[in-house]
Design a protein around this nucleic acid. Structure first.
Lengths: 218, 218
DNA sequence: GCTGGAATTGACCGGTTGGTCAACTCCCCT
DNA sequence: AGGGGAGTTGACCAACCGGTCAATTCCAGC
């Protein structure tokens, strides 16, 4: 393994990755055959096994790269923030924007969590996200900025809200992704029974009356 | 379809459903073959097609029944509550308890959301849950009990927190499921920046200092 | 003990799957 | 110009898939 690739080779490789990502996301991992992937690119089947060990390894690579990219985006957008609450908010917004901007990878995450073969890899990335947020929450708690509750649990809550609302947006969405970020931050900060007034001191929290256009009425 | 079954037949049928549920949950829907299911029960393959139209139809039936059962549990435990905020809390707790008590079905939900073939059926059930919670939120907002924000979005947030934290519990859990319910309610009500004091008036909200034993430190 | 529908069997089918491989082309480097 | 590794082909393979079905057994009601 770890073949020496020319620029043409690298190009073909990412071509296959892109095609596979699309098909996995639209049809599912199992229903997508290797023949489908190479057929979509217009090459013979052997090409696939020139660049990848197996279908499973390819999928794992896609997952790992996506997790890395998400994390990179969050780091970038929170790098210059010092306040712990600001950092949490920044992380949430970056996460929302990434998920809305990468719906295919978002769907792949969804599937990967559900199957044992890939769940382990997913858990690792998720744990990183959670413990990262938990760290900032811990600091905020120690500083008396937010109430003292289990930071890990709070972080899971944040992740849950982000996942669910980005999913709802992807299903019905037609508004501004940044607006979804506002909404997620608002809910994460205050829950459904939270106060309208911002009590944490910083002033960049969104209005409490946010009403997205994509919210459906069933 | 809709065959006339004797009591023996009904028994075998649910035997197959149970076996399929277990295998689908542990190995995934696609990796589980019909041969695996009937093999696990110890019968011939024809038996499967005597009781079910197809593998896909069986899975859809499992999903529908599970959704129905979850909803039934929520209705039962909120039937005698009149206060809208109490009803929301009751629904959350019932949902948590059901998910913790039905980990296999919980996993099946996870997969079903990820694949187009079943996503539609899942969306229906999820929309019911969401609109149900949203209705109570609407009432609470109109009564001035909670801040005025989009009820649908809040309901999605609640669902997200519930899903994520029950999942985290299933992965690392060893504590009391009711404690998880407290935690989810606490986060849903107040978010991470919420006040320690209960401002909604009713007194059965959980302590803010809940710290589950299953929260991992990474 | 006969009858008829419920229940069960497992060989069988056409199709698909992930993966292999010998043969071949392409193209850069000397 | 020719050597050699990168890149490509597609026939091929064994295994497996979901689903069918004629044949057989089981058993309750008469």
């Amino acid at each position: 393994m770890a073949r020496q690739l020319t620029s043409k080779g690298r190009q073909r490789r990412s071509q296959l990755i892109n095609q596979a990502t699309r098909r996995f996301a639209s049809d599912g991992y199992h229903p997508t055959s290797v023949a489908d992937i190479v057929g979509g690119v217009g090459v013979g089947k052997g090409v696939f096994y020139w660049y990848f060990e197996s279908k499973e390894q390819l999928f794992l690579e896609i997952l790992r790269d996506a997790q890395k990219d998400l994390r990179r985006c969050q780091r970038n957008s929170t790098a210059d923030l010092t306040d712990p609450v600001d950092r949490i908010e920044g992380g949430i917004r970056a996460g929302v924007i990434w998920m809305v901007g990468n719906p295919d990878l978002r769907r792949l995450f969804e599937f990967a969590r559900s199957e044992d073969t890939f769940a382990k890899a997913m858990k690792v990335g998720e744990a990183t996200l959670v413990s990262d947020a938990a760290q900032h929450l811990r600091i905020a708690i120690d500083a008396g900025r937010i109430p003292d509750r289990d930071p890990q649990a709070l972080a899971h809550g944040i992740l849950g809200v982000t996942n669910q609302l980005t999913m709802a947006y992807m299903d019905h969405g037609d508004g501004d992704p940044a607006e979804v970020g506002d909404l997620v931050v608002s809910i994460c900060r205050n829950g459904f029974a939270g106060l309208s007034d911002d009590l944490t001191g910083d002033s960049n929290s969104p209005a409490m009356t946010v009403k997205p256009t994509w919210s459906r009425s069933v």
